[in-house]
Design a protein around this nucleic acid. Sequence first.
DNA 1: AAACATTTTAATCAATTGATTAATAAAACT
DNA 2: AGTTTTATTAATCAATTGATTAAAATGTTT
Lengths: 204, 204
Amino acid sequence: MTKKGKEELDLTTEQKIKEAAIRVFTKKGYGNARTRDIAEEAGINLALLNYYFRSKEKLFDIVMAERIEKLFGVLAPVLFDATTSLEEKLDRIVENYITMLIEHPELPIFVLSEMRSNPGDMANRLQARKLLTDSIFIKQLADKRKDINPVHFLMNILGMTLFPFIGKPVLETLLGGGDEAYMAMMEERKKLIPRWVKLMLNES
Amino acid sequence: MTKKGKEELDLTTEQKIKEAAIRVFTKKGYGNARTRDIAEEAGINLALLNYYFRSKEKLFDIVMAERIEKLFGVLAPVLFDATTSLEEKLDRIVENYITMLIEHPELPIFVLSEMRSNPGDMANRLQARKLLTDSIFIKQLADKRKDINPVHFLMNILGMTLFPFIGKPVLETLLGGGDEAYMAMMEERKKLIPRWVKLMLNES
DNA sequence: AAACATTTTAATCAATTGATTAATAAAACT
DNA sequence: AGTTTTATTAATCAATTGATTAAAATGTTT
């Protein structure tokens, strides 16, 4: 394996394939994506796909791991930050998520819909439970509101933040005005969602 | 076409195929579902699938139309009801949705993920915009809070209600305790979500 | 029962698709 | 330069898969 010194503008073949795979898998899902689609999208010969990655499934696993990291990587650093308050964390989570999702609107539906097929397998890879037991966020929440179940609380934040991207095809039609109007609305939500969540937090 | 008089316990072949198709398509999605899977699930010969429905795609369209109706049919009757208050409507929407989704947890992820592939096509079939222009719900909301964008408001209700089912694989791992514990939590949300939404509604 | 229509089956087709192979081109090494 | 390794291509394979066909079975009508 000879790493050429040309990482100027154009990518290596391996990178081209992986990035094409990300686009095609994300758009069509595993079952609807053809390896030929990926090869064409990458502008390479079909055999090269199997030369660099052993099979469609192996390539998919790599893509999926990256996508999962992108989707949930937003969350952990904020939740474990010891230097910010609970309310600041709310602001950051929503702000970070929406900023990222405006760039990658199809990310949540892709990850969550592919997860339904391989249940358990990937959910574990996230070490999701550590989040509940170890995170500063959960401690801060328990400190302020012993009566609020943190899982309910997370469902609300993530639901209000992620769902508009998952339901985009429907909600965009509902709203009218096309993609620009929709994304403008997502920008609004960066400020609105934290306000609403803080209402729950300060409820009598 | 001879309609036999035996709709006692067992279904007609056509019904058996359709119901098997609902199960298989909902679980695996269009691309990952094989017509042979459906035939086997229905306990019939593969050729019968093409005899009753012309093709996999035609069968899928029928299944999809039914699933869309199931997912959004919950909403319209409540939103257009002239006899209930805004707050009563909130209670009903959440209650109806969660009750239905406990029976069909994979419904939202199926419909929304398949919609991403056929964008526009099905979104229109919902006549979603009528909901914004004609529904009593929207009128009542505008009456109470001119400053709240009804689309934001709907995103919040649907996000908090539907998202826990869409993200079930992850959130269930987070919670621990398996399916029963998770569904118990969904029952709790029937009362909690309306309370939270009413906070937004009565915010200063 | 005979004739006809409908339903079901087993076998097969043709196209798609993931993967491999053998040959060629390009790059790296000595 | 010559040799070996790495990268790329065109052609092809074998399995899967949606769909069809021709025959058999079942049901209906007269």
